[in-house]
Design a protein around this nucleic acid. Structure first.
Lengths: 360, 360
DNA sequence: CAGTACAACTAGTACGTACAAGTGCTACGT
DNA sequence: ACGTAGCACTTGTACGTACTAGTTGTACTG
């Protein structure tokens, strides 16, 4: 028995002076003169209370400063209607997805529980927190989901992965048609007259494999197999900067470069500009993600757009299908990207052709 | 009475086939042949169980796939030991603070509950979620905290604001000594020989007022009151880009510009470079925050460093002082920034002085 | 050998809410 | 007049855990 006799009204072990207990439904009920259950009905907006009573309940609640206790609700409810979100805050595109998830979840009557993956916390730990909070499904963004997590077995929560590193059985996946995106990028450049089109790949980053394959395939389709040129990199600015320096040290630059993502393209662009290489006059650059970065006026990057809002929406819908509509088969949702043409691409410079000024 | 007779073992309203209920402490206890209370002891690492029993409990828990239910813990526990975090994901510096908060909180035995402020959700709503989850204190990062939130009164949770928009009574504040930072920036430029030093202010952004005042004071201290030049802006790249265009349209550029933050400096820098203005040869640029952006090799921005880790640590400590050590007086914690000198600042070009090559 | 101390447990309840199953009461039809 | 709805409400638990107050059993003290 806790606190027999009410001795505990003294403030908890010397923390601030006598913090009053937060009011409960029963307090509200007592003030109105009804039962706790009725207050519960009112707050859940269920039928069974008169309009007048509803008003009085809300008024009393406001006067007392009552607010429902999520912990108790979670414990008692059959469903938590919570979706866990595992994300890093490093990629601007991911941030957009998180933002979009809020509205997508709300539309379906779910609440989000965020959990950032930071260097000092591994995914396991983050997952445990989400599971402890009774999330019914977990949405991961651009991260490796550890398939062998003990809770992932039968009866565990459903998992939806947005742009995962690798595809896992037993989970739904929302991803971009990377080869399609790459094809559009290459097509666009080829249409402008480019032939020497290089690619900075994303190494072990999510979707990097598919993008690289898409680049290769598209180049071959245009008969440019000989011009295929893949530079190892990742999804950071510095990898783009490094490749830029490597390229500058060579005899001849490619006329166009498709980066693994916008951040990488940014590093490439910035380093080129610093070195006096003009974009797009000397080199065209294409990014990937169409993040905020690409849209900045002084960057103005042609980029393969992945719609964050759509990805978020589809991910939530996938979760809802499993949770509310009984789907059990895995789904692989592939979204088509669109190339957004901006100022970082243009016709190629005249490479080693003897026709005068290579500039626009 | 719920589910009398156990009929509810049929799966909940046609969701996926028969999801097994998650195991509880009692299930673990039954398997080991002890009481639920003992399992609770073991999981809380409290004395009162033999080493052998502990081992058996953990083994049984693992076999059953048991994990503690946070909702129930929260409900039962005297203290939630949770800190709510209100943040936007827009400023890179803020992201660093959130990351650092995780370790700072863990060091003091607290858990973080993240809540992003997105356009579609107001602060009120976010606060309500955090309060519903029994957060003992709330840490806001670079946001306006609505002082008049109903829960903020007596007995509400404590609030610690990191770099708030405005200082509020009844809350602790962790902020940067902005005037100090600005003074360092101006001193550095003056030492290099600059006199025409402009400032792009942050408008209504957090700390913008103090930075502007710091700039003015420092300029006056150097007898450069006549050179004070404040351009309105905010904390986005585009505001920097806009100011850059404005400046380019003038007869003469200032020899140095101190931006409101790194993102703004980035826009300024990028636009200048695009226009053929060299940095630092033609114009020196100083940023503010020393975010990741400033450190990129091709940006290499001299910037006023705000230590995210220290801010996070002090914020958590402020919360702990109130929660665990009974402090009741408000605290205003001011952290000294440090100027980090990089490649975006150098001696001024020779402005209209007749002494030859203005370049380095 | 009684008495005490301690370790290793168990019993019982409370946290704040949601849900199922009642209980009055009024209105209505036959 | 009697039965029957249906509304507006109440009663009673149960969710999974934490915490207080026991209750054993064993070893040790004087």
């Amino acid at each position: 028995m806790d606190d027999p006799g009410g001795t505990g009204r003294s403030d908890g072990r010397g923390t601030s002076a006598a913090r009053p207990k937060r009011p409960t439904m029963s307090d509200v009920a007592a003030r109105v003169g009804v039962s706790q259950a009725l207050v519960s009905l009112v707050f859940r907006n269920q039928p069974g209370a008169s309009a007048d009573t509803r008003r009085r309940v809300f008024r009393a609640a406001e006067e007392l400063g009552y607010r429902p206790d999520t912990a108790a609700q979670l414990l008692r409810r059959t469903r938590s209607r919570q979706l866990g979100v595992l994300f890093t805050m490093r990629q601007p595109h991911d941030v957009g997805v998180v933002e979009a998830l809020y509205s997508a979840a709300r539309k379906h009557g779910y609440t989000l529980v965020l959990n950032a993956m930071v260097d000092t916390r591994d995914e396991r730990q983050a997952m445990d927190e989400l599971l402890g909070l009774r999330c019914e499904a977990i949405i991961t963004i651009g991260t490796t989901f550890e398939r062998h997590h003990p809770a992932t077995g039968v009866g565990g929560p459903f998992v939806v992965e947005i742009n995962p590193l690798t595809r896992a059985a037993g989970t739904d996946v929302v991803r971009t048609a990377e080869r399609n995106g790459m094809r559009q990028a290459v097509d666009h450049l080829v249409a402008q007259g480019h032939r020497a089109i290089a690619h900075i790949d994303g190494g072990t980053m999510p979707a990097a494999d598919d993008r690289r394959r898409g680049y290769r395939a598209a180049m071959r389709r245009h008969g440019l197999a000989d011009h295929i040129q893949v530079h190892p990199g990742d999804y950071t600015e510095e990898s783009g900067a490094r490749v830029a320096r490597d390229l500058l040290a060579r005899a001849e630059l490619p006329t166009a470069v498709i980066a693994g993502n916008d951040r990488c393209a940014h590093g490439l662009l910035g380093t080129f500009l610093r070195a006096g290489v003009r974009v797009p006059e000397d080199v065209s650059i294409v990014g990937y993600d169409d993040s905020q970065l690409a849209r900045l006026s002084f960057i103005d990057l042609t980029s393969v757009r992945q719609d964050a809002a759509e990805a978020a929406d589809r991910a939530v819908r996938a979760a809802v299908e499993r949770l509310d509509e009984g789907r059990t088969a895995d789904r692989d949702i592939v979204l088509d990207p669109t190339l957004v043409v901006r100022g970082s691409t243009g016709p190629p410079r005249a490479t080693s052709t003897p026709d005068g000024d290579p500039l626009r």
